[in-house]
Structures are given as structure tokens and as C-alpha cells.
Nucleic acid binder design. Structure first.
Lengths: 189, 189
DNA sequence: ATATTAAACTAACGCTTGTTAGTTTGGTGA
DNA sequence: TCACCAAACTAACAAGCGTTAGTTTAATAT
């Protein structure tokens, strides 16, 4: 259990501000004020504003990648794999709601790491689409347009960050189950 | 048929840039360069950067409001009303893809008009939720959590702007039908 | 030809931005 | 008690921001 450093606190605070106004609209002075210090003091802990964004987005993107890798290498049915994907999104979003906002809305402001991020995202979507196509081939899923199915599921899952904070009463398991029902039963055969 | 003014051209160009980088990251000099003129020249046509955002977002929000009003005052079944909502989103997004990006991502940077925008959005969501609840009461829809159903549909529909440009081959009717299938059949009784 | 006008221009403004350099503070371990 | 060090500070920078004022250009209408 790694202990929370001052740098971590800055990243957590930045995530919250980035969620509210977006990366570009948050100034280093905004961030410093939220931390109760002066802007220049931030630079004792971080290298640049850009580095904060990178730290937020890349770590989440890598969580998704390793989660997806576990799923595709499991021997579950394709329906079960889709349910595991729903689970993955609910879990990651639950423990990093604010960071998901940056991942969704501010990825284009990554500079050096933009290519790497896009690579991870493309691979993730290709794996996702593949599960759906396999599910259709094996008649587990209705023969709808696989891209539309993925689009519908993925955009809903990506928007969870907007919705989870409003429903704190609902625990992660219940939410995951309800979502699986709504998202998957419509395409189930 | 009102003819295209220079101001309209600026708003169209701004929409495209706002979609790519977000409102805050686009400078008036960026916009001017994209128009092939100098930044100061923009002010012969518009009052402020803020006004451009307002023009983009509020007009779309009002389109949604009047579309929703037509739907709730029609005597269609609740399932049919949901299909009409899908249609409404596909149509508005098809003819203003870029503007939808600002509506989704930059509404919080509205200043004077923020309250008005939120009012329209809240009313829209209340009407949407009501249709789902009525559908459940009349047994047209499965007895799932109505908020999750709305969340799932609405986030998919709000994200259409990301997806429609990639699928120019698919016409609006086909897309609307496929989406209705995926989104509604899962909750249909 | 002349007056009008839409739409561009140059030049500059005051302010905010991310960031750096160098310094002070206050607590911990030797 | 003193050296150390993380973490704050003040002061300042060059660049970029949205915007204004006043001027020029080129096409249209009288």
C-alpha cells in the first residue's frame, strides 16, 4: 500500500477541477488556490500542467487495457465477456470518477503521449468489437450491426462518470447488473 | 430561406474548431486563421467569443425543446414516442454534428445563458423520463429502473456526434432504425 | 464620378498564462 | 544544537489572450 504523496493530492485535486471546467480552462493558479498554496509551489511536486493530464489519463487507459486483456484471455462465453466489460467500466469509473472525465474530454490535449493513448484506445475498441462479432457468429447475440452495438454500449459506459456521482446509494454491483440488463438483453438472442 | 451571412460562416468554422479542441483551447487567432483573416476582423461580425458559443449551443437546445414538445403532445404510444426521440437526436445531430460537440462538452462555459440552458436541459430530461415511466405503467416497457434506461439511451444519443461523421454511408433513416432496435428492444416487453 | 458600405487591415491595450529562480519556513533525525 | 530537507514563499519573465480604436480597401448603388 503506497502512501499518498503531495503529488498525488495535486493530481486528485486537478482531476476534480478538470472535470468541472475542462483541462484548458483550469489554470495553475486555480489549482494552487484549490490546494491552498501559491501556483509556483506546485512545481516542487510536478513538472508541468501537461504532466498532470498525462498522469491522470494514461494510468486509467492502462487499467482498461489490462482489464480487457484479462477478459479476452478468459474462457467465458461472449455474453459473459460483455458483462465483464460492463463490470470493468463500472469499477474503474467508481474509483476514479473525476479522472474519467479527463479521459473522455481532454485526451486530445495530450501532447507527447497522444499517439500512445490512441493506440491503447484503438486496441481496446478492436477487442470489444471482436467479442461482439464472435457473439453474433456463435448465435449468442442477435444479428444487428456490431458497430452500432459497440457504439451504444461504449458511449453509455464512457458516460458513467456523469451518472455514478448522482447515484451514490446504488452500489457498484447493482449498477453493473442493471446496466448489463439494459445494455445486453436488447441484443441477446 | 435566409442566406448565409459572414457571421454564420464564423459560427460554422468555430463549431468545427470547438469540436476538435474544446471552446477554451480555441483562440480568436486560431479562428481567424481558419477563416483566412486577422483576429480583429472577426469583431466586425460578432461581439465576443462568448457570443459564438451562445449562438451555437442555445439554438440547438431550443431545437431539442421544440422537438420534444411536439412528441409529448402527439398521441403516439410511449414506444413510438421513444422512437421519435431517437429520430429527433439523429436528425439534429446529422445537420449540426459540430455544434453537438459544444453542447455536450462546453455548456459549462456559457455565462449569462447558463441558467437558461440548464432549465431547457432539465425540462427535456424530465419529459424523457416521464415517457419511460408511462411506458412501464402501461406495460409497454419492462419494469427496469427508468433512470438507468434514460441514462443509457440519452448518453448514446448525445454521443452520436462522435459517430455519425465516421459513417457517412449510413443514411439518417437507417441509423435511426438500427439505433431504435438496439436501444429499445432491450427494454421492450 | 461620388457616396456608401461591408469587410478587411495595423497597432496596440491591459490582463492572464505557464513557468523559473532564488529564498524562507518549520519540522525531523543525528 | 545543528544540519537537513520537503514544501512553502516572493518576484518576475516572456508569450499569448480577448478585445478596441482607427484606417484602408474594394465593390455596389446613385
Amino acid at each position: 500500500m503506497k502512501q499518498e504523496t503531495r503529488k498525488d493530492e495535486i493530481i486528485v485535486t486537478a482531476s476534480k477541477l478538470f472535470k468541472e471546467k475542462g483541462y484548458s480552462a483550469v489554470t495553475m493558479r486555480d489549482l494552487a488556490t484549490a490546494m491552498g498554496i501559491k501556483a509556483a509551489s506546485l512545481y516542487n511536486h510536478i513538472n508541468s500542467k501537461q504532466d498532470i493530464l498525462k498522469a491522470i489519463i494514461i494510468s486509467i487507459a492502462e487499467e482498461f487495457t489490462s482489464g480487457m486483456n484479462a477478459i479476452i484471455h478468459s474462457d467465458a462465453s461472449n455474453i459473459d465477456k460483455l458483462e465483464k466489460i460492463v463490470d470493468l467500466h463500472v469499477n474503474i469509473t467508481s474509483h476514479n470518477t473525476n479522472g474519467m472525465a479527463s479521459l473522455n474530454n481532454d485526451w486530445m490535449h495530450l501532447e507527447d503521449q497522444l499517439g500512445y493513448y490512441l493506440q491503447l484506445r484503438n486496441e481496446y475498441e478492436a477487442n470489444f468489437l471482436n467479442i461482439i462479432k464472435e457473439g453474433i457468429l456463435s448465435s449468442e447475440l442477435k444479428n444487428s450491426n456490431p458497430e452500432i452495438i459497440m457504439f451504444s454500449m461504449l458511449t453509455t459506459l464512457r458516460s458513467l462518470y456523469l451518472w455514478i456521482p448522482k447515484k451514490e446509494d446504488l452500489n457498484a454491483n447493482d449498477l453493473s447488473n442493471s446496466l448489463s440488463e439494459v445494455l445486453i438483453e436488447g441484443i441477446n438472442n
